[in-house]
Amino acid sequence: MAVDLERPSNFITTRLRQAVNWGRKYSLWPLPFGVACCAIEFMSTVSSYNDISRFGAELVRFSPRQSDLMIIAGTISYKQAPILKTIYAQMAEPKWVIAMGVCASSGGFYNNYSTLQGADHVIPVDMYVAGCPPTPENLLYALTRIQERVEKEGFVPSAARHPDRVGA
């Protein structure tokens, strides 16, 4: 975007794609797929002290059809997996996914008969956040990284960003 500082006016020159991406970046609507301990830290991230609305992502939607950022907060079990898959499919493009915490990223220290060893076994994940559970600051950092990608990449459908996962 460019503003003429010498002769200030009401006009900004930019490219449409840039303006749209800039807007999209600061208006991510997260869907918390909160199933375990991490969901409590997600609550902390939303609350006053950490205040996710500083990054424009405070409009938490519980309907997948209205959201563009899924935050998987918690352990995904084999029983939960088909539900996660369905809900992801119900989100409209463009969509991004954060795997919050080690359980969602890799199963964490639950290496057992009931725990899926990472949510990326069923849906594509864009950002992994370490921690058990990650601190709110950590999650906010992941959010800003997603924002950078949104600004840079723009409207790239999830399937194009994860070509290896087509049909997953």
Binding site: V35, A36, G74, S77, K79, I83, Y110, N112, Y113
Partner: peptide, 11 residues
């Protein structure tokens, strides 16, 4: 229930 069965007892 059982959606977040993490096998505490087996672990």
């Amino acid at each position: 229930i059982g959606y977040i069965h993490r096998c505490f007892e087996k672990e």
